[in-house]
Computed example of a mutant assay.
Amino acid sequence: MRIAILEDDPHQLSHLMQTLEHALIAGDSIVTIIAFSNGTAMQQALRSETFDLLILDWNAPGLTGIDLLQWLRKWQTDQVPVLMLSALTSEQDVVRALDLGADDYIVKPFRPMELRARVQRLMARRRPVAKSYRERFGRCEFDHLSQSVRIHPAPGDDETAERPTLTDREFRLALTLFQHMGDIVSRSHLLESAGYSDQEVSSRTLDSHIYRLRGKLGLEAEKGLSLRAVYGRGYRLESSQQDCT
């Protein structure tokens, strides 16, 4: 799980990050919070990076939060949830942010419990909480307890379910791709989901994992799932079958 924050006030940023750290209890998931003090710097990052949630300060320096929101909704296809955070309190300002594509709006100074509740609601919309320790995407069923994947046979097929052997990192990497079906997931996002830090990986580490996952899970177009590299961004898992999402 990755969250990006645009906030230029160090005290506000510290308070915001502490509040989020208490709110984001994600089980075995790895939570990464990346802060930006300048909207232009965040825009540059969004050209190649992907996140599960953005929190934008309206009056940030460089490119303002509201301008960044407008750019994001016009040029980015991934509808990442956006929470606007602003000292502006008028109804017109709130409506403008929502009309431009914000998913929620909180007035500064924020109330920690309210912020946590709103963030959790947005994250649940992005990635619905599983009702059990299993998540199923079409024929692929992920078991969080055993860190395993079961590939069910196609309807009408008499074959038994397949149980490919995945490492812990491969399981988490595959789960992230399936949870973001149809969206580009950046290389950094994928590596963090697999438990890597930037200091311990080479440029080929992710590509090696992807190569193995294609073979183990049958992520090929003729089988209904296609895992493609997106130049300068990362990877996108796409389905040609309606029951795979």
Score class of each variant (00 low, 15 high):
Val95Phe: 12
Leu98Ala: 09
Asp99Val: 12
Leu100Pro: 05
Ala102Ser: 06
Ala102Trp: 03
Asp103Glu: 14
Asp103Gln: 10
Asp104Ala: 11
Tyr105Phe: 15
Ile106Thr: 01
Ile106Gln: 06
Val107Trp: 04
Lys108Gly: 01
Pro109Asp: 09
Arg111Tyr: 03
Pro112Phe: 01
Glu114Ile: 12
Glu114Trp: 02
Glu114Gln: 14
Leu115Asp: 00
Arg116Ser: 09
Arg116Thr: 04
Ala117Leu: 12
Ala117Arg: 13
Ala117Met: 12
Val119Arg: 04
Gln120Pro: 00
Met123His: 00
Met123Arg: 11
Ala124Trp: 06
Arg126Glu: 14
Arg126Thr: 04
Arg127Gly: 01
Pro128Ala: 07
Val129Lys: 07
Val129Ala: 06
Ala130Thr: 09
Lys131Cys: 02
Ser132Gly: 02
Arg134Ser: 08
Glu135Phe: 07
Phe137Asn: 04
Gly138Trp: 04
Cys140Thr: 08
Cys140Tyr: 10
Cys140Val: 15
Cys140Ile: 11
Phe142Gly: 05
His144Trp: 02
Ser146Leu: 08
Ser146Ile: 01
Ser146Ala: 10
Gln147Lys: 13
Gln147Ala: 10
Val149Met: 03
Val149Phe: 04
Arg150Ile: 13
Ile151Lys: 13
Ile151Asn: 08
Pro153Asn: 08
Pro153Asp: 10
Ala154Asn: 05
Ala154Leu: 14
Ala154Gly: 05
Pro155Ala: 10
Gly156Ser: 11
Asp157Trp: 09
Asp158Ser: 14
Glu159Met: 08
Glu159Pro: 01
Thr160Phe: 03
Glu162Trp: 05
Arg163Thr: 11
Pro164Thr: 03
Leu166Val: 10
Thr167Tyr: 08
Asp168Thr: 11
Asp168Met: 12
Arg169Trp: 03
Arg172Val: 01
Leu173Ala: 05
Leu173Ile: 04
Leu173Pro: 01
Leu173Trp: 02
Ala174Ser: 15
Ala174Cys: 12
Ala174Arg: 00
Ala174Val: 02
Leu175His: 03
Thr176Tyr: 00
Thr176Pro: 02
Leu177Glu: 02
Gln179Arg: 15
Gln179Cys: 07
Gln179Pro: 03
His180Cys: 11
Met181His: 04
Ile184Thr: 08
Ser186Ile: 03
Arg187Trp: 04
Arg187Tyr: 03
Arg187Gly: 05
Ser188Met: 08
His189Asp: 12
His189Ala: 10
Leu190Tyr: 07
Leu191His: 00
Glu192Ile: 03
Glu192Tyr: 02
Gly195Pro: 07
Gly195His: 03
Tyr196Trp: 12
Tyr196Asp: 03
Ser197Ala: 08
Gln199Pro: 00
Gln199Ile: 05
Glu200Met: 08
Glu200Gly: 09
Val201Cys: 05
Val201Lys: 00
Arg204Met: 14
Arg204Lys: 13
Thr205Pro: 07
Leu206Ser: 00
Asp207Trp: 11
Ser208Cys: 11
His209Gln: 14
His209Gly: 05
His209Trp: 08
Ile210Glu: 10
Tyr211Thr: 15
Tyr211Trp: 13
Tyr211Glu: 10
Tyr211Ala: 13
Gly215Glu: 15
Gly215Arg: 13
Lys216Phe: 10
Lys216Gln: 13
Gly218Lys: 12
Glu220Asp: 12
Glu220Asn: 12
Ala221His: 12
Glu222Asn: 14
Glu222Cys: 06
Lys223His: 15
Gly224His: 06
Leu225Val: 12
Leu225Gly: 02
Leu225Asp: 05
